[in-house]
Amino acid sequence: MAGGRTGSAARADAKFVEFIDVEKNYGNFHAVRRLNLSIGRGEFLTFLGPSGSGKTTTLNMLAGFERPSQGVITLDGKSVDRLPPYERNIGMVFQNYALFPHMSVADNVAFPLSVRKAPKAEIGPRVIRALEMVKLERFKDRKPTQLSGGQQQRVALARALVFQPTLVLMDEPLGALDKKLREHMQIELKQIHEMLGVTIVYVTHDQSEALTMSDRVAIFESGNIAQIGTPDALYNEPATAFVAGFIGENNALDGVVERVDGDQCLVALPAGLTTSAMAIGGISPGTAVQLAIRPERIAGSGEPANNRFKAIVEGRIYHGDHQRLLARLPGGQVLTVKVSPDAAMATGETIDLSWRTIDCRAFPAGAAPDGNTPNTGSVT
């Protein structure tokens, strides 16, 4: 199996994969717009975004299933634009597993070695090592139809890794699994990545999946990368309203900027309310903005905060380890607030809410990525 390098140590080669001014057009439709992205050796990078945002098209260009309309893609310093998929030394794991139903588990895993004409004496031991890695060595003689969905996914993963690829691409690989099994497989995939140090590029529309497994996440929107960074940076410091809404749960409030003071601003809300917030993007007095506040960053009046409001409880949702309150501000806007599971707040009760300025971010309303602006991504 590959390497044994951890993800953090392996990223010394910051440009193991590069997209340089890459575009993909289908007629007049721009699926990917001037993408510039660097992926480090040994990194676990996830492409995250809604359907049609360009993430799968980008993965397919890297795999060789699609050709860029313009630009260059390099792997380990060499252009792969004209190489067919089988010459790129890339492993692929698909959502539908793509296993051969008439072959045994061992034969499925051995297939990439056979087509690469590996010595027969090596194939058996390498297949067993790959199956041991995914804890399926005792199922080697079974057919895929005799396995559960999670076991089939492990076979697909073993097959993708058995020929020691330099890069593994995964396209929604856990999408067909139930929630509990999907969460278990997320942990296993991350452990395998840390053990082998192989570079993984992963595609999903599930933000929880992306935050759980990734070293970095690239958030796609309308063919652009809206933002790229570590999971905690994307969650705590979203660069756009789209990113704030797509990563984690978020309260969105509409307002108008009254005053800007350095990196902060004062925002007027309906019913004469005002709040201070961090000013993100091109904001000036009179700018219509959307405020983003995480439910867990809204506190009761006993907490230190710059912004304080009265609100009426309109509903409670019990989640076991916490409750979600639906609280209406005087201007009619409703906030979701994360509170203790033991908090006793009745529907119709008036409560005090507050948040710190640093936890509230103001974005220009309706801001969208500029299709003429290059996207950039680098390992940090």
Results as ranks from 00 to 15, higher is better:
residue 66 E to K: 01
residue 136 L to H: 09
residue 177 L to G: 01
residue 23 E to F: 08
residue 301 S to G: 13
residue 10 A to W: 07
residue 243 V to F: 00
residue 54 G to R: 07
residue 301 S to Y: 01
residue 90 I to P: 01
residue 64 G to N: 13
residue 226 A to T: 07
residue 116 R to W: 00
residue 239 A to M: 10
residue 240 T to W: 00
residue 341 P to Y: 02
residue 36 N to Y: 02
residue 314 E to V: 08
residue 143 K to H: 09
residue 206 D to L: 03
residue 130 A to P: 10
residue 15 K to L: 13
residue 257 V to S: 10
residue 354 S to L: 06
residue 266 L to G: 07
residue 289 V to S: 03
residue 348 G to I: 05
residue 324 R to Q: 15
residue 261 D to S: 12
residue 359 D to E: 06
residue 222 S to F: 15
residue 326 L to N: 14
residue 363 F to L: 05
residue 98 A to F: 06
residue 16 F to D: 03
residue 273 L to K: 04
residue 62 L to Y: 04
residue 54 G to Q: 06
residue 44 F to T: 00
residue 278 M to P: 08
residue 164 Q to M: 08
residue 258 E to C: 08
residue 314 E to N: 13
residue 77 G to L: 06
residue 83 L to I: 11
residue 334 V to F: 06
residue 245 G to Y: 02
residue 94 F to R: 00
residue 370 D to I: 00
residue 44 F to G: 00
residue 380 T to M: 12
residue 208 S to G: 13
residue 302 G to N: 13
residue 373 T to K: 05
residue 90 I to T: 07
residue 174 L to Y: 05
residue 169 L to S: 02
residue 341 P to S: 07
residue 342 D to N: 12
residue 110 A to V: 05
residue 264 Q to E: 15
residue 5 R to Y: 10
residue 13 D to C: 12
residue 140 K to N: 12
residue 51 S to T: 12
residue 62 L to G: 10
residue 373 T to V: 11
residue 247 I to D: 11
residue 207 Q to Y: 03
residue 42 G to L: 11
residue 292 A to R: 09
residue 11 R to M: 14
residue 127 V to M: 04
residue 156 A to L: 09
residue 321 D to Y: 13
residue 271 A to Q: 13
residue 312 I to N: 12
residue 8 S to T: 15
residue 304 P to F: 00
residue 225 I to C: 10
residue 274 T to C: 04
residue 303 E to H: 14
residue 263 D to L: 13
residue 159 R to E: 01
residue 304 P to C: 02
residue 231 P to T: 05
residue 362 A to Y: 02
residue 238 P to Q: 01
residue 183 E to I: 07
residue 348 G to K: 14
residue 242 F to L: 12
residue 258 E to A: 09
residue 255 G to E: 03
residue 119 P to W: 12
residue 316 R to Q: 10
residue 19 F to S: 07
residue 329 L to P: 07
residue 20 I to E: 15
residue 70 Q to W: 10
residue 260 V to H: 01
residue 324 R to L: 15
residue 54 G to D: 11
residue 19 F to M: 13
residue 218 A to D: 06
residue 278 M to S: 11
residue 55 K to L: 03
residue 344 A to H: 09
residue 121 A to F: 09
residue 122 E to T: 06
residue 204 T to P: 04
residue 351 I to Y: 00
residue 372 N to E: 12
residue 323 Q to F: 04
residue 91 G to P: 07
residue 202 Y to C: 00
residue 197 G to L: 05
residue 186 Q to H: 01
residue 188 E to P: 06
residue 156 A to N: 02
residue 26 Y to V: 14
residue 273 L to S: 00
residue 286 G to E: 13
residue 217 V to F: 04
residue 45 L to V: 06
residue 302 G to M: 11
residue 274 T to L: 07
residue 32 V to Y: 04
residue 136 L to M: 09
residue 265 C to W: 10
residue 269 L to H: 02
residue 107 D to R: 15
residue 201 V to D: 01
residue 311 A to G: 15
residue 10 A to K: 11
residue 303 E to N: 13
